[in-house]
Design a binder for these strands. Structure first.
Lengths: 351, 351
DNA sequence: ATGAAAGCGCTAACAG
DNA sequence: CTGTTAGCGCTTTCAT
């Protein structure tokens, strides 16, 4: 075994250095009341001098908080994304928004993969909760739509925030997917398109329905017919996008534009179109959803709706931290702005 | 304040359920010696029945281990990568390899960003260490090359593993960058190239030198002249790749192929070549380093050396966990195999 | 406004 | 082989 590590500096050392009691140091650390400014400064100086940082484990043991947030991502989808190297940056954006926001408040975000479909989700999550005792949980799609998970968390009285899941229990933060689909569709309509195909996402995700709804709304408000044949079912994957696009392009009156509910499906649409001898955007316009890095590098680069993943995660973290601090969270259901990034895949339809 | 949470199940409950002492349960959890199989089974059954999972915080408080590994990444580079949305998947691959390996052993990997250049690195790292008390630290480039960091860790007697930094203190895991550059260069030579340009990486990274060395070695063993003008200085960024490529293509006797030390620089080379009216690979071959997702989607897709980031991180985690378990780590300096992925950007030179 | 005492859930060291 | 005791570093509750 290794020799004992150099003893770390604890709250005791700070107390001794500042000539006060343990408790006073604790109060200063936690911005507690009832500490004279003079003493506060003395303690702060001691902390600074000794380079003291409180141990998360000890804080969790003593008190009721752990200063930990647990982010739950879909296991299969995440691992598949990593392995495939398709450049999906969901996780990166989550970390960018969530980690940095946590760091601002002395919190840590811990990242965990769980399989929504597994019969043992409940066990898996309970285990992680018992192990870490997080002060809050961030649910990414589709976990926020899974009642097994949300009910478990509610029962355990652990605050949680769902990203991209509307109107569920707990906090909610998302973008207006319906409006985004409408804006995307309006963009195509304004270019002159009249027959616009839509490739939907997996029904497991609540946002898939919202996107479809927004597409329909755009058609209606433009006075265009809603042809059910123009809506093809997908599940966000490249393969499903390929099949859906083939169906769409095989129609007697084929669409002049396609709005697909994910980048992978859009890329599939692009590929199918090109191998059918169609030029994008001359013969077919394509608009995508998500705006992951790769769509900037396809030829042509894709017009896409960008999801504000980092801001959403930051917002979720912020709400949970507020809740942990006992501050009231006024707006428990936030909607963040999205963006339509116009690139080279959308243009006027062929005459 | 919220009502008290439902009391979590602790080691006490398990002990009561199994009718044994606390300590016996602890022994079972930790695979300790001196427990009869019968009792062991009884305890295991109780654990299973109650769904008991030990609290990391409590284990850390009582014992000498935290079951935490801390991964230190370069702050600026990581955040810039996330913001730019260039599809760099270093972090994803780290998580894929590191997190999953940690999970296998009941460990957690915590991810932290620190700025190597900051005068306060030492403070930043000490703070994270005091806060988390990790059992080991994983250093990604260029942290492993920074003596301030490695010496701090050594002084604190915290086991650490450096990724992509050869022969330093602590554990080391990397790939043979020199050999990779040689293989990449040999690939070009075997296609018939005789004038091969090289764009180097930032000198702050030890592996930059190794890659240059491998390139030179390949030229030498093929009996080709080493023209210093064919080596252009870069720093891994797109901008530096643009400048370097311009220099290379401006040479009186310009190269017929370029080996660049990063994907961003290769993409820059591709862009400069194309805007100079050169066709890739007809007029100029390009071979890249790293093989991040985007290089599959450029036109043409780039031939590249793939770094085994996930395996390297997994290996680093494994070594640190072994060390924490008191098991001897035999091979403290591992080299993992890389791969040359041949795509469409390399071909025979123009005649 | 400050301090003292108790205890969080676990492991280490020592008894038996 | 198994149980008992004493903390780990902090926060809580209660005194002062």
């Amino acid at each position: 075994m290794s020799p004992p590590r150099p003893r770390a500096v604890t709250i005791k050392h700070v107390a001794a250095e500042a000539g006060v009691s343990l408790q006073t140091v604790s109060r200063v650390i936690n911005d507690g009341p009832n500490v004279r400014d003079e003493i506060k400064n003395r303690v702060r100086a001691a902390i600074d001098k000794l380079g003291y940082v409180p141990s998360l484990a000890a804080r969790r043991m003593g008190g009721t908080r752990s200063y930990l947030l647990l982010a739950l991502n879909d296991r299969d989808r995440t691992i598949d994304g990593w392995r495939s190297g398709d450049g999906t940056d969901w996780v990166d954006q989550m970390l960018l928004g969530g980690m940095l926001k946590c760091a601002e408040h002395g919190y840590r975000m811990i990242f965990e993969l769980v399989d929504t479909h597994d019969a043992r989700v409940e066990r898996a999550i309970s285990g992680a909760l018992a192990q870490l005792h997080p002060d809050g949980v961030i649910l990414t799609p589709p976990h926020g739509d899974n009642p097994v998970i949300t009910e478990l968390l509610a029962k355990l009285k652990i605050p949680f925030a769902s990203i991209g899941s509307e109107g569920g229990p707990g906090f909610t933060v998302g973008m207006d997917d319906a409006e985004a689909a409408k804006v995307a569709t309006d963009h195509l309509i304004s270019l002159g398109h009249r027959r616009i195909g839509f490739i939907s996402g997996s029904e497991e995700y609540a946002l898939s329905g919202a996107r479809l709804e927004g597409y329909r709304r755009a058609l209606r408000s433009a006075g265009l017919a809603e042809d059910p044949a123009l809506v093809a079912g997908g599940d966000f994957t490249f393969a499903s996008g390929t099949a859906a696009t083939r169906d769409l392009l095989a129609l007697a009156k084929r669409p002049t534009a396609i709005l697909a509910s994910s980048d992978q499906m859009s890329l599939a649409a692009l590929q199918v179109a090109q191998s059918s001898g169609l030029q994008v955007p001359r013969d077919l316009s394509i608009v995508s959803f998500d705006d992951t890095p790769i769509v900037k590098f396809s030829t042509p680069a894709l017009t896409a709706i960008r999801q504000p993943i980092a801001p959403m995660t930051a917002c979720a973290a912020q709400m949970l931290i507020c809740a942990a601090n006992g501050e009231p969270v006024t707006d428990t259901c936030r909607t963040l702005p999205f963006e339509l990034i116009v690139r080279a895949s959308s243009a006027a339809p062929p005459r």
